[in-house]
Amino acid sequence: MSLYIKYFSIHLKSQMQFKSSFFFTTLGQFLVAFVTLLSINFMFARFDSVGGFTHEEVLLCFAIIMSAFSISELIARGFDQFPNLIGNGGFDRALVRPRNVIFQVLASQMDFSRLGRLLQAILVFIYVIPSSSIDWTLPRVITLALMIICGGLLFFGLQVLYAALSFFTLEGLEFMNLLTHGAQEHGRLPFSVYGDGILKFLTFIVPLALIQYYPLLFLLGREEAGIFHGIAPVMSLLFLLPCYACFKLGLKKYQSTGS
């Protein structure tokens, strides 16, 4: 852990060396989130609700997904860039070091510009938490925290899976973006609005709805939602097991690209 903190501070320091570059990439991240927020607001200027959710409820959903995603991108950037690491042979160096491989990939890169996105999410939280009619009891606060933390871990799992697939293909597979960037972009609306098929897929195959739709029902105090909905984010973590297994399998099969 202390080694990780050391890496963390090194990455932070090195990115702070290029202040204007850091400022602009962070601003860019902020803007990406901001234009999504604007689109939500433009739509709700025309409509009162979508799929039974009001403007405030959608904003809450947006902020939760945005924070979960940006945290995972900040920390797990190394897996996002993993195809490059394989391509340039950097991964071979990691293999010969006496440390856990996943730890090394994790520590190899961190992207602090994602703080721009996180800042946007926090601003939305500041606006929406007092203005929504949610009664913030302790279980609800815990659920909110679980949604963000487990959401971050789930996105992390998807990135590990993306990295694992590139063991076999040696290049990044763009369709995984649908499950990471796509989930973040389209996850601004509760997944139920996309219809039953999508919701089932996101419940049983890639359990993104477990960190978004179900616990959101619990937060909003909907009748059908019980404590089971509140702890759904924890169950989503089961998804990390197959991701890890795929990575292990890929590692076993790994042949260096030789560069």
Partner: peptide
């Protein structure tokens, strides 16, 4: 292609939800 198709489909489903509403 898969990505662009999936992305387009999700966008349309999102608009469809608003359309059903009003």
């Amino acid at each position: 292609l898969v990505t662009q198709f999936g992305w387009g489909l999700m966008t349309i489903l999102g608009f469809a939800a608003f359309y059903r509403e009003n």
